[in-house]
């Protein structure tokens, strides 16, 4: 029973990772940029979600609004930070991205204070007993939302016009252009969707801990990078599998070897072990 519970907790944690990491792998797949600032957008999503919920009392409204605003924010980051330097070697956008992330953290601290904010009445705190486990509404909500959104994304990619256009642009932006696809519009959409997903992830996290802090993007900033490498750079399915796998590994690892290695050490040990066997990651990426 304990093992089952640890496993489920691992999947819950993993679905949180998935919502953040997918946006990162989408950007890498399209532009080969390590979009560290993504973690700042994740934190922004958490802040907006909390503030709107506290102001209006509606979590649903907060989620939609926050996702929209952060989606636009992601597009803005692309336009201002990445588009001007796309032709430079890859470490240039990476450094710019890190700079944006650090700036965002400090802005959060200056605007919202270093103490962090809490919900007036956190939603989804009621407990549900499922399969003999005591789970909170927010945990179940997060897993379901992750499945729905990521499932929707997959459907979009496979079955719609825009999905095909996106896949074409990932494969070969120049040729995609010559078939009438505006690569810039595809990029905007890419950032919009990835950032929106991260915002939703940020809101669920804040519900689970009832806390948003300026540094809440700190761990996702590097953890998500590890996850997309683990899953195969640019491979969305791989990222999802890697996220869940990592969640489960951490869940067991922190309990049984937690006195020797902390959570991050366990995560990176797992990453290194996998890469030694399969250097390209679990699935082949771009």
């Amino acid at each position: 029973m304990l093992f089952f519970e640890l496993f489920v907790q691992g999947l819950i944690h993993g679905s949180m990772y998935a919502m953040i990491a997918v946006g990162l792998t989408l950007v890498y797949g399209l532009l080969r940029i390590l979009h560290v600032a993504h973690a700042g957008l994740f934190a922004l999503g958490g802040y907006l979600g909390l503030l709107i919920t506290n102001a209006t009392g509606s979590l649903a409204l907060a989620m939609i609004t926050s996702a929209l605003i952060v989606g636009l924010g992601g597009m803005l980051v692309y336009r201002l930070c990445y588009q001007p330097i796309l032709d430079r070697p890859p470490y240039v956008p990476l450094i710019a991205s890190i700079g944006v992330f650090i700036a965002m953290e400090e802005v959060f601290r200056l605007v919202f204070g270093p103490y962090g904010l809490t919900y007036n009445h956190p939603h989804l705190q009621s407990q549900v007993t499922l399969l003999g486990l005591n789970l909170r509404g927010a945990e179940i909500g997060m897993v379901i939302t992750a499945m729905v959104l990521l499932g929707g994304l997959s459907y979009l990619a496979q079955n719609t016009r825009i999905g095909i256009a996106w896949r074409a642009t990932v494969d070969d932006p120049e040729i995609a252009e010559s078939f009438g696809i505006d690569a810039v519009k595809v990029r905007y959409l890419n950032f919009f969707i990835g950032s929106g997903l991260a915002a939703v992830g940020g809101i669920f996290i804040s519900l689970l801990s009832n806390l948003v802090e300026p540094t809440m993007g700190g761990v996702p900033a590097y953890k998500a990078l590890a996850i997309i490498v683990l899953g195969g750079l640019g491979n969305v399915k791989g990222t999802l599998v890697a996220s869940l796998a990592l969640g489960v590994v951490e869940a067991f690892g922190t309990i049984y070897i937690g006195s020797y290695l902390d959570r991050d050490a366990i995560a990176f040990a797992f990453l290194i072990a996998v890469l030694m066997i399969r250097p390209q990651g679990l699935f082949t990426g771009r």
Partner: peptide, 18 residues
């Protein structure tokens, strides 16, 4: 992809055109 060229321009239609 090429055959749907006339639809690609409009984002909303492209999103929902299943």
């Amino acid at each position: 992809l090429a055959a749907g060229h006339h639809r690609i321009g409009r984002v909303i239609r492209a999103l929902t055109a299943v």
